[in-house]
Simulated assay, not measured.
Amino acid sequence: MTTGWTGDALLAAIVLLGSSVQWLTGMGFALVAVPALVLLLGPAEGVALANCAAGAISVVGLAGGWRRIRVGAMVPLCVAAALTVPAGAWLTRRLPSPVLLLTMGALVTLAVLLVLHGTRVPALRGRQGAVVAGAVGGFMNSAAGVGGPPVSLYAVNAGWTVREFVPNAQLYGVVVNAFSVGANGVPELGRAQWGAVVGAMVVGAMIGRGLAERIPEKRARLLVLSLALAGGATAVTKGAWGL
């Protein structure tokens, strides 16, 4: 774990970028921030912090869009996610750090490529699709801090618009991250680090909201996925080197 003034500054920069992306596109904090947080804090602490931050951002984001939640789809999705969170947390505690880095990076990279491709999967439709997406997302969220891509793929296969997707993704973020924090715990950070994290989240929200009015949605989405792909590849490289 990197400590001191430099480490706090890096931590703040990572959280600020992830928070900006989350407010800009409705999701993406974990995709952008997790690989960098894992490299900076270590796998366990990086995932735990991502769970805390992404959950907090989702709570705030949900406040303005809860009326557009699709209860019929989200109940089975969130229940399935909650049931698989313990398995992901169990795996995280038992794998060596290089293996975790490699696994997390590979999951992020694969997920980004699937979302970029707009993969159509018959199994991700209807109530069955909600259960599958939720189960995979819950496991990935607690194991690697990245549980959004399965839900994104479900939304693509269900034909949801961005307006429909965002509030439902926020609800999912609240539920799955609450269970993930319960399973993984809260990261052991000092006061200065927590201060840097909270401050970066506030500033990131302001930046993201401001940019949302200026950057076209497709360009913003491509930027998020490109950053996530680079982070995933870096984590894979460091994990493989550690082995």
Rank of each mutant, 00 (worst) to 15 (best):
L37M: 09
G55V: 06
A73K: 10
G64W: 08
L77I: 04
G242E: 10
P43R: 01
V156M: 02
L41E: 05
P187V: 14
A192P: 01
R219P: 00
P98A: 04
A33F: 04
L171K: 02
G126H: 05
F179A: 13
S19E: 02
R94D: 09
A143S: 13
A123W: 13
M206V: 13
G159K: 05
V136E: 00
V112K: 02
V21W: 09
V34A: 13
V60I: 14
A158L: 09
T25M: 07
V151Y: 01
A9M: 13
V151H: 00
G159E: 05
V162R: 14
V59L: 14
A111H: 00
G145F: 07
P122R: 13
Q170E: 04
A144P: 02
L16A: 14
G105K: 05
G173A: 10
P150H: 06
G190C: 12
G208P: 01
Q170S: 08
G55F: 11
A50S: 15
I215D: 07
L100H: 01
T25P: 04
T161K: 11
A178N: 10
T92H: 04
G7F: 03
C52L: 15
V146A: 02
A192Q: 14
A73N: 02
S58I: 01
C78I: 12
L10T: 01
C78L: 08
A212Q: 15
G145K: 12
G61A: 14
P149K: 04
S20T: 15
G55S: 11
F139A: 03
W5A: 15
T3S: 09
L113F: 06
L39I: 11
A44D: 02
A106K: 06
V197G: 01
T119D: 02
L11V: 11
G231D: 13
A228W: 00
V121K: 06
